[in-house]
Simulated scan of single mutants.
Amino acid sequence: MRLRARNDIEIQCDEPCPLVAILRPRSGANQWVLAERYEIAPWVPASEYIDGFGNLCQRYTLPQGASRVSVESEVEVEDQIAIDRHAPQVPVAMLPDETLMYLLQSRYAPSDKMEERARAIVQGCAPGYPQAERIHDWIRENLDYRYGVSKESTCALDTLECGAGVCRDFAHVGVALTRSLQMPARVVVGYLLGLEPMDMHAWYEVFIGGRWFAFDATQDAPRGGRVRVAHGRDIADVAFLSNYGPLEIKRMEVSVAEV
């Protein structure tokens, strides 16, 4: 499946504002970037680097006043996300080095406080994909998708107490519960074809059976048509804009269409 994802952002700065953006998808095992356009208006000098998680980061300073950042990517992606209900849990001693960071508790995914709850949820499920799938299903069954109940500081424990949240909150709960069972898990942000209302989206991945599997508890069935932009321990690692000065997003328009 070939998708065209667009993100058009209008920004107002009271003074020159340094920032790091993560807006470019990267080619990998499950997607291939065919074409891109990245525009900053007014144009400013920019640089790019790869962060510790493998994400493409763009660094520049926006001038005082109004600016516009526009990114368009044409990407070949999977029609369906992979499912393997027989995929086993990988023992910690056999995990690849690069997955170990995704076993640690993090700011929004305090997995060190979630094991008892996770064990109760997956009781009777075999370690590996069956446990990860049961956690995904439990989130869908027990949390309401609702705007306005979470804020930037909301962590997985807060979401469980509230019983509701949005995509990033669902992802944090999934990551925290799964990590507490010693399965590496990470938050992913990007675009999903057919998402309503259309916006940047968050889901999560679990390392099972030697590969990463995607889970999205906001959807009623496994869906492909995803453009992955970034992944990290939680949403703090994958912010699409990290500004180091006053900045206001006046408008952000996202679209995803099949080519």
Score class of each variant (00 low, 15 high):
residue 83 I to E: 10
residue 162 C to P: 00
residue 153 S to I: 00
residue 88 P to T: 08
residue 109 A to Q: 06
residue 247 L to M: 15
residue 56 L to R: 15
residue 144 D to K: 15
residue 142 N to Y: 01
residue 49 Y to Q: 05
residue 210 G to C: 07
residue 209 G to N: 07
residue 53 F to K: 12
residue 161 E to L: 02
residue 25 P to K: 09
residue 169 D to N: 07
residue 121 I to D: 11
residue 157 L to C: 13
residue 34 L to V: 14
residue 211 R to N: 06
residue 116 E to G: 08
residue 12 Q to R: 13
residue 256 V to F: 10
residue 225 G to V: 03
residue 244 Y to I: 01
residue 187 V to N: 12
residue 92 V to S: 06
residue 92 V to E: 15
residue 70 S to N: 11
residue 96 P to E: 03
residue 168 R to M: 09
residue 172 H to P: 03
residue 221 A to I: 03
residue 234 D to R: 07
residue 175 V to F: 08
residue 45 P to M: 05
residue 49 Y to S: 14
residue 149 V to N: 03
residue 17 C to N: 12
residue 126 A to Q: 15
residue 2 R to G: 04
residue 144 D to V: 14
residue 132 A to E: 00
residue 130 P to F: 10
residue 6 R to S: 14
residue 231 H to W: 06
residue 233 R to H: 06
residue 4 R to V: 15
residue 222 P to V: 07
residue 39 E to R: 14
residue 46 A to F: 08
residue 35 A to T: 08
residue 93 A to C: 13
residue 7 N to L: 10
residue 74 E to T: 14
residue 188 V to A: 13
residue 3 L to A: 02
residue 98 E to P: 01
residue 38 Y to W: 11
residue 98 E to R: 12
residue 113 K to L: 12
residue 154 T to S: 15
residue 197 P to C: 09
residue 217 A to G: 08
residue 99 T to Y: 08
residue 131 Q to S: 10
residue 152 E to P: 01
residue 10 E to M: 06
residue 103 L to I: 11
residue 230 A to K: 04
residue 48 E to G: 14
residue 244 Y to R: 11
residue 247 L to A: 10
residue 196 E to K: 14
residue 29 A to Y: 13
residue 34 L to G: 05
residue 152 E to A: 14
residue 249 I to N: 12
residue 210 G to D: 10
residue 116 E to H: 12
residue 88 P to N: 05
residue 46 A to P: 01
residue 133 E to Q: 09
residue 236 A to P: 00
residue 212 W to Y: 08
residue 168 R to Y: 12
residue 203 W to D: 01
residue 8 D to P: 02
residue 118 A to M: 04
residue 239 A to R: 15
residue 99 T to N: 08
residue 153 S to K: 03
residue 84 D to N: 15
residue 18 P to K: 03
residue 90 V to G: 00
residue 30 N to I: 11
residue 155 C to L: 01
residue 129 Y to N: 00
residue 257 A to M: 13
residue 245 G to D: 07
residue 55 N to F: 05
residue 99 T to P: 14
residue 191 Y to L: 05
residue 184 P to Y: 15
residue 150 S to A: 15
residue 18 P to R: 04
residue 147 Y to K: 13
residue 170 F to K: 00
residue 212 W to M: 04
residue 12 Q to P: 00
residue 220 D to R: 11
